[in-house]
Every structure is written in structure tokens, then in C-alpha cells.
């Protein structure tokens, strides 16, 4: 096992941990806002770790840049949809916007 393999394994484990934490949060948190918080924040960190692991595994700067772009767009999409969903959820609760 080389140092790269070790780093990839560690990064993947860290990613899995954050994904698991996000999923537990989605299932256990009481209301929509905290569930969205768990989903978007923890999952984006998890995705970041998995993306780092994939980039390291490939060992190419071009591929790493593409993976970084994927991660950025995933964050952007998650943030936007979380904002929109939180708004709908608040309206459904009757709090008003």
C-alpha cells in the first residue's frame, strides 16, 4: 500500500463519515430547516472529501480541475435548492416568508 493509497482511503473514509452524518441528520432532525442544514452542509463536505480522493487517485491536474468544477457546481446547486426548499417549507408551516 503506497502513501497515495493510504491518503485516498483516509479521504474516502472521511467523506463516508460526513455522508453518514448528513443522512442521520436528515432522518433524525425534527424540522425541515435543520434537515436541509444536515443535507447540504454535511453532504457537501463529504462530497469534497470524495472528490479529493478521486482527484488524488487519478493523479492528473486536468482531471483534478474537472473534479473541482463538479464539486463547485454541486455546492452551488445544493445551496440554491436548499434555499428554495426552505422557503416552501416555511410557507407550508404557516410562518410566512
Amino acid at each position: 500500500m503506497t502513501w497515495t493509497d493510504l491518503a485516498v482511503t483516509l479521504l474516502l473514509s472521511a467523506g463516508l463519515f460526513f455522508y453518514a452524518a448528513g443522512t442521520v441528520g436528515l432522518l433524525r432532525f425534527p424540522d425541515a430547516a435543520s434537515r436541509l442544514h444536515a443535507l447540504t452542509k454535511a453532504d457537501n463536505v463529504g462530497l469534497g472529501f470524495v472528490a479529493l480522493a478521486a482527484a488524488l487517485q487519478w493523479g492528473s491536474l486536468v482531471v483534478a480541475a474537472k473534479i473541482a468544477a463538479v464539486w463547485l457546481f454541486a455546492i452551488l446547486a445544493a445551496g440554491t435548492s436548499a434555499q428554495l426548499m426552505a422557503r416552501v417549507a416555511r410557507q407550508d408551516d404557516g410562518d410566512g416568508p
Binding site: 452551488l76 440554491t80 434555499q83 428554495l84 422557503r87 416552501v88 416568508p97
Partner: peptide
């Protein structure tokens, strides 16, 4: 286009950023 003004704001920034991409 979304009816809710604040939602339109969020979706608008996203759409304006994403269309050129």
C-alpha cells in the same frame, strides 16, 4: 419564472450564473 419574489431572486442568480456555463 417563480411567483415568490424571494425565490425568484435565488433562482435568478442561479440561472444567470448557470446559463453561460
Amino acid at each position: 419564472r417563480m411567483a415568490d419574489p424571494a425565490a425568484l431572486n435565488v433562482a435568478g442568480s442561479f440561472g444567470r450564473l448557470l446559463l453561460p456555463v
